[in-house]
Design a protein around this nucleic acid. Structure first.
Lengths: 354, 354
DNA sequence: CAATATAGATCCCTTCGTTTT
DNA sequence: TAAAACGAAGGGATCTATATT
């Protein structure tokens, strides 16, 4: 006869009284059925008799059985959770209404699907390795990735480890093979610029975002398209490079006014930049909306609270978050017929600056 | 000879090319050591020779081995992640600087400890059951719980399922057995009230928070303590019940002024309430800071931006989040000598309204 | 006899192939 | 012959008691 030593049960989860957590085995024993049958009942599988169902459910209830998810994940390969990963400082993540809005809608969409969201903000390079191991280790079934920097290969690495990833915003490189959801930045730039042109402005300028980011490039492309569609020449003198911040917008405007004092309309590539534009215009003695029309981009909450309220291109933040999440969940499920690239429409919100 | 059917490998994680993920077994084989040795090396265990270490590390590298976390969790009982659970609507979670600040600091603290944060906001009752199963299932090692409502038994249920839980704020019931971190609400109420009394105000009133919440009760208790410590009678006519919102603060002030037009100082139990107080005072033709001094509670960012800037009691939000997280992690580790109750000091921030 | 390395049991669940009714 | 239940084989890592040098 083999001598079994008592099971040592290293650190396994155990409820308050220090009993080990009940297992499926115990439920089955108590119900007088096999483990397989108990499993089928608890997962809501079809092939079980009504009697078996009742008796198993009762047994599970009695001993407050909760399935061990690690064991389940081990066999199914699914964790029923996805990561929300932001490559930014905590500072920026929590200061930016865009990130918060995305987090909010992603959380809602994930919860609606009955799954969990693992929220991570990544700063230091070592964070990246750790996250990679975490994700590839099977603790999440997929990744929502925001604010990818430069030509960072993180999404490629995740995909090659078998972790489906969906980006927010078109990536600078690898756009062909990666999955992403983006706002219609080109269309938004066009929309704003066309409005300025149509309202009779003679010299419509733009204060751009950083041109090493897709959103910056695309909004500028939209500006240019609208200008050319109106049969006007694309004039580089009317393009001043900023960086999406208020300070950058201010500086870009100062330069612009210096070279081209005749400017009577400015499309700013972000609302924050627009705030800087407005300040610079004021400082130069021009009236905003009257002498110079201004349109921003994003529609952050503060835009409506400005004096005068800022006209802007509204990004559908909630829809972006929901779309990313749905796309990721569909990929995880292996739904066929999905497309790598989703572009959501933007909308011109006219207030008082244009 | 037994006939083995090929392993079917249901849905297990598999990298891009559809090969199954490499296992520890394969690393060991490649390195020419046993699985146990490979495991020890990869976990940084001590009892391994330098040669074994090198050869295992190399092998792991070669086949891009990533440990399967579900398997690890199954045996260790640890998932290396904790939940951040908010019992609120998404709306309130994302509108309230307090929740966002807590999320931020918890995220930082958790990341610093090399762990992950699972972020959940809970609205509907069915969410609770699902979360309970998730947490008890071992996907998280503990729970940070914010904004517990009424006498909700969720923390008790979590604890009884073996999931350590730390609350933000003293719970209404069960405070004896539960673990929580709170700001010194009583002390803050005292601090504000004493300052108003000391600065020569004759009739110091308070606009309270909701009195079915601990924070509301405690801040009122602090007010009362300061009044009595100053040798003045506690006058219920000077206590007007609000609910932490601006609308509530406004209404409470209107009532108060109606009954006690002689009021010359008001301690409001929250900054939002204070905003309402200020508006009501203005509407009544009184000057804020001069005729009537006002002190709020929280120090939300908007407090400093008010006209005039609001004096208030500052809660150490980042410290609260960090303390909760550290406490939870320490509990999970089984560190001895921890105390159930942590109260962090608050601080009076004098600006222009008092 | 130290210091390392090993085999094998164990964690708990899902699922396949087979038997039972 | 179906339908329902069963037994046993994984799934991948950790850890203890045992062997090896």
């Amino acid at each position: 006869m083999t001598c079994h030593t008592a099971p040592v049960n290293t650190a396994a989860r155990r409820p308050a009284r220090n009993r080990p957590a009940p297992t499926l085995e115990e439920v089955a024993a108590r119900a007088g059925v096999s483990r397989a049958t108990a499993s089928r009942v608890l997962r809501g599988d079809q092939k079980v008799s009504e009697r078996a169902r009742e008796v198993v459910l009762a047994a599970a209830q009695e001993i407050s059985y909760v399935p061990n998810l690690a064991a389940r994940t081990l066999v199914t390969g699914r964790s029923e959770s996805v990561a929300f990963l932001v490559e930014e400082s905590e500072e920026r993540m929590f200061a930016d209404p865009f990130f918060l809005g995305m987090l909010r809608s992603a959380q809602e969409a994930v919860a609606t699907a009955g799954q969990q969201l693992v929220f991570t903000v990544m700063n230091r390079p070592e964070d990246q390795e750790r996250f990679l191991a975490y994700a590839a280790g099977g603790h999440v079934d997929g990744v929502l990735l925001l604010s990818l920097h430069g030509r960072d290969q993180l999404p490629q690495r995740l995909e090659s480890l078998g972790v489906p990833t969906v980006l927010s915003g078109r990536p600078l490189s690898g756009g062909r093979r990666l999955w992403y959801v983006d706002a219609d930045n080109v269309g938004g730039g066009e929309l704003a610029t066309r409005h300025l042109l149509d309202s009779g402005r003679a010299h419509v300028a733009t204060v751009t975002g950083p041109l090493d980011m897709c959103a910056g490039q695309d909004r500028l492309a939209g500006y240019r398209a609208a200008v050319e569609a109106a049969g006007r020449p694309y004039d580089e003198g009317l393009v001043s490079v900023g960086d999406f911040t208020a300070a950058g917008g201010h500086a870009a405007t100062v330069r612009l006014l210096d070279e081209r004092p005749d400017v009577d309309a400015i499309f700013a590539a972000s609302d924050l930049a627009a705030f800087g534009v407005v300040r610079a215009l004021r400082e130069s003695g021009r009236s905003v909306g009257d002498d110079v029309a201004v349109i921003g981009f994003d529609d952050v909450p503060a835009a409506a609270d400005q004096q005068p309220p800022l006209s802007t291109v509204k990004q559908p933040i909630a829809a972006l978050g929901t779309a990313m999440t749905r796309l990721l969940l569909d990929r995880i499920e292996g739904r066929p017929g999905l497309t790598r690239r989703t572009i959501l429409p933007v909308e011109l919100v006219l207030r008082e600056t244009a």
